[in-house]
């Protein structure tokens, strides 16, 4: 995803002369092509994310569309107040880009688990929040942001994610990405944000093979969001959500805030207690219960329990 991001950013920078990239001393073997093609529109702010974010806002106040780039929690939580006051309150065109969001850098430890960012950023005024699932969605997000500069957060995975679908429009709202085998008249939706969409798709495929159709949605755009923005989802009385994020304030929490009465939900999330475990993204997903088996169990639990969780 980060490769798709930088390639698309370079493409957009060629036609958008006010795009500027500020990095927090990270991006080795990623950002160099941008820096060499646009040396006057690139800055390494050093290991100093508060300053990076405020100076990005200062640049933005003079007509630049600034992308700040760092990994995991560094460009978000470390400088949350700079995003809130300097960027969002002043409504300045700064796009905060985090690579390795969720559990992408799982083996680097708790410091690098980006599992609180959605909750932290979602309440901020004027902010657009995009959480793409694959390289195609990431590129589309950059295109959309270049055309719509404003306070924004781009939540990216790492490198090497597979292309999960070719459906367009992910930056505008939920998109239906089910494979034909799993499409059909279903009363159950799987809704995912970020790269964990792959788990939802795999679970849907297995369920389809068992004669249980499920519709899968990719939800990159998490803000601005209102009930209407997710209208497609509300056609399904039962929804299972997928995210590499804690429940509080995350994607499942967002849908619960917006859902009309009568929609029942289950959420596959990262438990807050998953703090001392380190391992690959795959391993941590298993530990967290973000798995195909867990998705199927969640679906079965709808019939086991009539109450809405």
């Amino acid at each position: 995803m980060r490769t798709a991001f930088i390639q698309e950013l370079i493409r957009q920078a060629r036609t958008h002369p006010r795009i500027f990239l500020v990095v927090g001393d990270l991006g080795y073997s990623v950002v160099e092509p941008f820096a060499s093609e646009f040396p006057d529109r690139f800055l390494n702010a050093g290991v100093a994310e508060q300053n990076m974010t405020s100076l990005a806002a200062g640049l933005a106040s003079e007509g630049w569309h600034v992308f700040t780039y760092s990994i995991a929690n560094f460009p978000t939580l470390r400088c949350l107040e700079q995003i809130r006051n300097d960027v969002c309150y002043h409504r300045l065109p700064v796009t905060v880009v985090a690579v390795g969001a969720g559990l992408a850098y799982g083996n680097l430890g708790f410091s690098h688990h980006g599992i609180h960012d959605i909750a932290a950023l979602r309440p901020l005024p004027n902010l657009t929040l995009l959480s793409p699932a694959d390289p195609g969605e990431a590129a589309e997000a950059v295109q959309w942001l270049a055309e719509n500069p404003g306070p924004s957060y781009l939540r990216l995975g790492k490198a090497g994610e597979k292309t999960l679908h070719t459906v367009q429009g992910s930056s505008l709202g939920p998109i239906r990405v089910s494979k034909p085998a799993s499409a059909g008249p279903a009363s159950i939706a799987f809704a995912a944000t970020g790269s964990v969409l792959s788990v939802a798709l795999e679970a849907a495929e297995r369920l389809a093979a068992q004669g249980q159709p499920v519709t899968v949605f990719s939800c990159s755009r998490l803000k601005p969001a209102d009930r209407e923005a997710f209208a497609e989802l509300w056609k399904y009385p039962r929804i299972v959500t997928f995210e590499e994020h804690v429940l509080a304030g995350g994607f499942g929490s967002l849908l619960r805030e917006l859902a009309p009465d009568g929609i029942r939900m289950r959420s596959l999330i990262v438990p807050e207690t998953l703090t001392s475990v380190v391992g690959s993204q795959e391993y941590l997903r298993t530990q967290a219960g973000l798995t195909v088996d867990a998705a199927i169990r969640a679906l079965e639990s709808f019939s086991a329990s009539p109450t809405t969780r």
Partner: peptide, 30 residues
């Protein structure tokens, strides 16, 4: 910053100089 002549709202400390650095950088680059 809603007041004419005010460039930037502050209230939390430690924001003005980093923001000003960004503006100075903009002037330099432009």
């Amino acid at each position: 910053h809603k007041v004419p002549g005010v460039e930037f709202s502050t209230g939390s400390l430690g924001h003005g100089l980093p923001f000003g650095l960004g503006k100075a950088l903009a002037a330099q680059r432009d």
